[in-house]
Amino acid sequence: MFNEKEVITKVLNGDVRAFEALVKQYERLVFYVVHRLVKDEGAVEDICQEVFIKVHKSLARFNHQSKLSTWIARIAYLTAINYLRKYNRAQLSDYPEDIENYHFTTETPEHLLNKKETANYVEQLILQLPEKYRTVLTLYHLNEFSCLEIEDITGMPEGTIKNYLFRARKLLKEKIQVYLKNELP
């Protein structure tokens, strides 16, 4: 079993194997965050690598006030945002006031023919949402963080996170309803 405190102590004492175990433990968490934020597939692995190098460099400053997963997720989130700021500003968008009327380019899901592909359709829709909505949905549903933990990770107030979650899910639900109606005979 992964013992967080023991692994941290070992890593700080220079144990490379312990750090490898830490990477294995959290690589999926980091990948989910980076993958949802950065659409450039070729850059995702490099960014994940950068995240873990940062984790290694600053692990001595980790003060155990939050869970290690929350702390690593914050580094992943900030690294992905920095990447977008540096290389792809178009993916960073401000809070849209009329998210209910958000325009998706995948308005015709006829190419997705069976119900098994609902998840793929949802994934495509999520990737078109503004970055803050994508982040909140990913951290909450895929990484299973609570709203308070998401507040720690992103710095957004808890109320805003709940609001983003509600509005994004309502919007996606409406899209799914249309999709299911078109798809079912």
Binding site: V16, F19, E20, A21, V23, K24, E27, R28, F31, Y32, H35, E41, V44, E45, C48, Q49, F52, I53, T118, A119, Y121, V122, E123, I126, L137, H141, L142, R169, L172, I176
Partner: peptide
């Protein structure tokens, strides 16, 4: 159900070794 589904792609199998 779809929101909780893991992405089909992932990091390379030896990612941890590469980072280390």
């Amino acid at each position: 159900e779809a929101l909780g589904k893991e992405p089909e792609t992932g990091l390379s199998y030896n990612f941890a070794a590469k980072v280390t």
